[in-house]
């Protein structure tokens, strides 16, 4: 698993990259009440806003961590946004990207580095 400074995690599954937010991020956000997912088939570029999540406190953007095509989104999350608080790194993934350039992942932190990053 890789981690971004935006508190997203990336997990490689076969030839796809699964993206979600970290437990730390979900704790900071508080109870998540709304998620707007991108559409499958969307071409995205790194750092583009592709997703919005809102907690009881505020709205946050989720950025595409890498270039590629979004091939699948986690639709059930829309009906059950609280899952992001319950299982942020498991069931509550947001979308899967077919990476255009898998080497973009090399820049991101491993778990130890991320834990250090969040102090």
């Amino acid at each position: 698993m890789k981690f971004t400074e935006e508190h997203e995690w990336l997990r490689v599954e076969d030839d796809l990259v699964v993206v979600g937010i970290t437990a730390h991020a979900s704790e900071q956000l508080g109870d998540v009440v709304f998620i707007e997912l991108p559409e499958a088939g969307t071409e995205v570029t790194k750092d583009e806003e592709v997703c919005v999540i809102e907690s009881v406190k505020a709205a946050s953007d989720i950025l595409a961590p890498i270039d590629g095509e979004i091939v699948e989104v986690n639709e059930p999350l829309v009906e059950d946004p609280g899952k992001v608080n319950e299982d942020p790194t498991g069931d509550a993934w947001f979308f899967k990207i077919k990476a255009a350039d898998p080497s973009q992942m090399d820049d991101y932190m491993d778990e130890a580095a991320y834990n250090k990053f969040i102090g």
Binding site: G30, D31, V33, V56
Partner: peptide
């Protein structure tokens, strides 16, 4: 602003 229970609960 909140306790460990969280705003919703």
């Amino acid at each position: 602003v909140q306790y460990p229970l969280g705003v919703m609960k």
